[in-house]
Design a protein around this nucleic acid. Structure first.
Lengths: 230, 230
DNA sequence: CGCCTTATTGAGGGGACTCAAGGAGAGTGG
DNA sequence: CCACTCTCCTTGAGTCCCCTCAATAAGGCG
């Protein structure tokens, strides 16, 4: 029985470029795996041993430098591709923010499989190019935007991503997949600054926070306006 | 006569994965082109019409947002790949910082050629993955590092890149390919802050500045130490 | 309830920005 | 060769935003 056939991310992951036969072959080198919140799937600097797809849960891509400060480089949600194919070492760590399920492959087996399946490589290339564009957008945020803009932009982004699959547009109510600390690390701010910005948005009646992780957007236009104000 | 055979970046560009025959074919859809300093090769938001390789000179990848602030996302040197294959629009602008020569392809022709030449796509994928890693490193710089660290890191990076091809290690003396303003845009700082940091490094006898754009590293270890200090 | 983690709020300081003026080259033309 | 201009860079003074340090509050869970 092919586990891929009923895979929850079948349509969104890189595998969707493969036919049934090839999918079967890929399935044979793959392995479903669960990770507990806080556990690492990959360690920065370690040998790059595996790659894979997120099936369920949220993970973060993060890096820390010599003096201990660490920075979250991205959030990985179901359907996203994890890991660094064709490389000796993993440049960043991948850590589960919630309990998660992933579908992993040994890097060497995946590399070999990819090289023999141009459509898969092509899909991976397109995905990587898109990710590069997105990362560069984020660079701009880190380089030039104020704390208020960063937080507002993050909320909008999360609102969009949490409604993935729906056609109702960005959700007005959703749960943040990350803690304040993770938000701060992602946005290049401190936890206190993030908290203050959230408070400010609540005082201005732009958002409400019905729970610790919950966000309810009251005035979407006003939130958007914050992202562009000087 | 195949212009690629004697191409200055033959060994460093993506083309090196191709055999003579395929190279010839690629050559036929390519076109050598010169751009004057300040001219744009691609405009952010425009249709993605071309891709190519840098042959000579320096270009920058940049983006500007609604309120006019703009940010340099990367520096492109000879051998680097330019543009966004397989995409409708160009997410960023590419602008010449010096007079430059590039080898360009219409995007559609390149896309078609790439899809038929897996080794080329594979090379492009590896390159894109590496670029993504590098961009993420830079994100960390923008998110977490002080002005002093940013400038020091930039000088080290430029020292390394300017000695490309040599085996003498990073050059101690080199010319910056960019203006102070470009440095500031790249590092997410203002021109004044960059200037002050350079002055500081000179006062501390870590570097000397024998000319407007020239840098001479006097104490490499001290410079490295700056990149990691708190 | 008590403990622990996570989030909020406050006070104070510092690093980078803003605004403004002055210098230093490179190129031009007399 | 020297004024002149233009651009790029440097330096200074003052301000503001975000960080740091510190205390308090709010959940979550045994």
């Amino acid at each position: 029985m092919n586990a891929c056939a009923q895979c929850s991310v079948r349509e969104h992951a890189i595998c969707h470029s493969l036919g049934d036969e090839k999918l079967d072959e890929l399935n044979r080198i793959g392995r479903r795996q669960t990770i507990k919140k806080g556990q690492a799937l990959l360690w920065q600097g370690d040998e790059s041993l595996l790659v894979g797809n997120v099936l369920e849960g949220t993970l973060k891509l993060s890096a820390s430098n010599a003096d201990g400060r660490d920075h979250t480089l991205g959030i990985m949600l179901p359907g996203d591709f994890i890991g660094r194919p064709f490389g000796e070492t993993s440049a960043h760590s991948v850590i589960a923010l919630t309990d998660a399920r992933v579908c992993t492959f040994s890097r060497s087996a995946f590399d070999a499989f990819a090289q023999e399946n141009p459509p898969l490589e092509h899909g991976l290339l397109e995905r990587t190019l898109t990710e590069l564009d997105r990362t560069r957008e984020w660079m701009m945020l880190l380089g030039r935007k104020s704390a208020a803009e960063r937080v507002a932009l993050f909320l909008i982004e999360m609102s969009k991503r949490s409604s993935k699959g729906d056609d109702t547009g960005p959700s007005r109510k959703f749960d943040l997949p990350v803690s304040r600390q993770d938000m701060a690390n992602l946005l290049g701010l401190t936890i206190e600054t993030v908290s203050r910005q959230i408070t400010r948005l609540r005082e201005d009646r732009i958002i409400a926070t019905p729970g610790r992780r919950a966000i309810l957007i009251l005035d979407f236009d006003a939130l958007k306006a914050v992202t562009a104000e000087c």
